[in-house]
Design a binder for these strands. Structure first.
Lengths: 221, 221
DNA sequence: CTCGTTTGGTTAACGGCGTTAAGCCATGTG
DNA sequence: CACATGGCTTAACGCCGTTAACCAAACGAG
């Protein structure tokens, strides 16, 4: 009896249509445009139909986050092949900014909106916590750990989490400022995001690494 | 005829009561608790009465922001007496984190919520753009400029705005991550904010400054 | 003094939000 | 055939920001 399975497939299909419609809304029109009613309208259902598939709006958002966190981890993992951990960290920074600039609304969703609960909490397809291929922070932490193990860092920098969070936080702050201020703020003459991010990465790595292991890009101009 | 002036005074008084009620709400219960209806209820007026004093909610928020930006600039200016510009930058970093930890909801309002329009746009009591005593970014930029003029920086770091934004962005990112994740996130073992912020500041300044001018706190531990 | 205007406030209402309750109806099952 | 299930609908509740219409008290002008 494949009937039951067909029904199940159909249900998953509409569930997916809901997710797609929601993502399309916040990507194209921003976070606050993603309302239950508008999502429903987009797929020509009533608003309450969504509650058949998701407990509430937070659950829907959480599922979107889980998916996009995976995509984000994928993007970062493109630099996994770089052998030198310090150089890998540098390239991770570029990839980070690239992602933020290419998918600004997704970046907002992932890192700047109030977290509904936990992002990877027993979710269906959520990122596996601690797996560097699915968890971007684990990927970053892994690179930092390798750099430390390879004796690239000065002896005073032993706290892998703290170093990871300094690198992450530095770039996140730049992205967040750019996203919250808009491209052309009258208050502040914002320098180009990527340029400032490169400066940030270079400064942090230069400070972290022993002089001999600082990597090549520091002498940039 | 002081009658008109008394009326004017009374009007400004209720206007101030609205502002106070709104601030109390978002400080104590968070940004989304600050609704027009709840503000009005707090001062025992009808919700629409607020519109006599403010064009709309955005105008009310803007006024709150303008005021808090001034308070923020005041806090930073407490380190203005420090002569050495690099050491002043270091102390500014501490003051920045102190402010963020003491008034987290205010920090959110100022730097993490969608900016209604421009913060200091011809507002009554808004911060005077470019005046270091009232504009925190101008204060930061001024210190960076002084450090550069005092020949503290390596020759490749000439862009005062970019350096300012790197310093600001670095600390902002750490604060923002802490605020958005909550104190105890199950995903990430967040290191103490102030410790990480000190590391951030030291790393950035060390990278920016000539070795001779790096300042004293770098050899911490 | 009185009449019209201004002003700081009210209530009612609109459209939109997330969400719950109740019901409808096609489908699959005994 | 009767019955249960489940995906979906409409109606409604209580919030939200905001507008419209109105009201009473205070004011200025004749």
């Amino acid at each position: 009896m494949g009937i039951k399975e067909r029904r199940e497939r159909e249900k998953q299909a509409t569930r997916q249509r809901i997710l797609d419609a929601a993502r399309e809304l916040y990507v194209q029109e921003g976070y606050e445009a993603m309302t239950m009613r508008r999502v429903a309208e987009k797929i020509e259902y009533s608003a309450t139909a969504i509650y058949v598939h998701f407990k509430d709006k937070a659950a829907l958002i959480q599922e979107l986050c889980a998916h996009d966190f995976l995509r984000f981890a994928e993007v970062l993992n493109k630099v996994a092949k770089v052998k030198d951990p310090v150089e890998r960290l540098r390239k991770m920074g570029r990839a980070y900014i690239d992602f933020a600039q290419e998918y600004p609304t997704t970046y907002r969703l992932l890192f700047m909106e109030r977290r509904p609960a936990e992002v990877g909490a027993t979710s269906a397809e959520g990122p596996e916590q601690g797996n560097p291929e699915q968890d971007a922070y684990a990927f970053l932490r892994h690179a930092v750990q390798e750099a430390k193990d390879a004796d690239c860092f000065k002896p005073e920098h032993q706290d892998v989490d703290m170093v990871s969070q300094a690198l992450w936080g530095g770039l996140h702050g730049l992205v967040a400022l750019h996203l919250v201020m808009g491209p052309e703020d009258k208050w502040i003459d914002m320098r180009p995001l990527m340029r400032t991010a490169v400066l940030m990465t270079d400064l942090l790595l230069e400070g972290l690494c022993k002089p001999s292991k600082a990597g090549g890009a520091t002498r940039a101009r």
